[in-house]
């Protein structure tokens, strides 16, 4: 029963964060929100009995992917001015 409540709360949070990630005007906020979606998704994988997938998603989706976005954004801002 407690698993169901956690899953519902995390699912709603994922959807709110996804809408923020797509629709927010500031790109930095969008990238951070996309990272948060990956982090919550890794908790869902843990509830679904998939610890391997949860490890991969936590390391790649919310760590390396966010860093790559910020490298590219930083380079674009630097060339701008």
């Amino acid at each position: 029963m407690i698993n169901l409540i956690i899953a519902i709360v995390i699912g709603v949070l994922i959807l709110i964060m996804a809408i923020i990630a797509v629709h927010h005007k500031n790109i930095v906020v969008g990238i951070i929100a996309a990272g948060v979606v990956s982090l919550f998704a890794s908790i869902l994988y843990l509830l679904l009995a998939a610890p391997d997938v949860a490890m991969t998603e936590a390391a790649i989706g919310s760590g390396l992917s966010t860093i790559i976005f910020f490298y590219v954004l930083n380079k674009i801002k630097r060339q701008n001015g």
Binding site: A18, V22, S65, F69
Partner: peptide, 28 residues
């Protein structure tokens, strides 16, 4: 939500963000 972002956003980085959301949804 990912497809909606891919189709409606005009910024290239926002389009890539929409693609990553689409990816995560398929995995779930």
């Amino acid at each position: 939500i990912g497809i909606w972002g891919l189709l409606t956003q005009k910024n290239l980085i926002k389009i890539v963000i929409g693609f990553t959301l689409f990816d995560t949804g398929i995995h779930i």
